[in-house]
Amino acid sequence: MRLQGTGLTLSYDDRVVASGLDVAIPDGSFTVIIGPNACGKSTTLRALARMLKPRAGTVHLDGSLITSLPSKEVARRLGLLPQSSIVPDGITVADLVGRGRYPHQRLMRQWSKQDETAVGSAMEATGVADLADRCVDELSGGQRQRVWLAMALAQETSILLLDEPTTFLDIAHQIEVLDLCADLHEQGRTLVAVLHDLNQACRYATHLIVMREGRIVAEGDPAEIVTAELVRDVYDLRCEIITDPQSGTPLIVPEVRRRARATASG
């Protein structure tokens, strides 16, 4: 497998989020990492993307230690859409997307024909080509997220990691971004995304990694691993699993809480 972490101990300062974690991303998969808040899913993704230095353990990309590769070389193979980025004041869509070409550029090769083509097709794929000359500040949240995604695409990496790409978007924009991810996956990219919504994860993932308290509890095809027991164990939530009438994937329907209305009078 091209991207994998072995024996990872991940921590922020003194707080250990995971220890002895092994994680492998199947080539060509759309892997979704899911789990309750603070289970370490984003931390794991950040470690795979070399944003976070593991306290112990290693991350390998294409068989080499990711830290031993030149950082621009890594950036030509592996892209990341971070959870939050700052939009520079007054930048246009085309300029922002163009910044994704940085790892392909040098001091004396600042804007090649390939850069031009890559930016064009990235904006085309994310449907922001019409906005090319607009200021990113003026765009809606959904448009903005597509612009960030376009920047990551312009990087032309075969592996793309996405840290909660649907946060802060309304449901229509969430689906729009996820459909776009599914398209990118179909074109042959390996995608790894951290998501919050279990139903969306089941619908889009070809490989699901379920985490709790820094450990992987289950992984595999969502249709095979997602059961009412798993959801209860991982989320402490009682539910029923039915088949999504649209996609045929598992759909989690939480149990209705038995109304324990106070009957006592006075």
């Binding site: 950040r46 944003m51 950082s71 859409l81 980025s85 700052i86 520079p88 940085y102 990087q155």
Partner: peptide, 20 residues
């Protein structure tokens, strides 16, 4: 100057495109 301009988007975004 060019790396600094990228880092204005946040450290993660800059690291993602290969800036140390």
């Amino acid at each position: 100057s060019r790396p600094l301009r990228m880092m204005e988007m946040g450290d993660d975004s800059a690291k993602a495109v290969g800036i140390r």
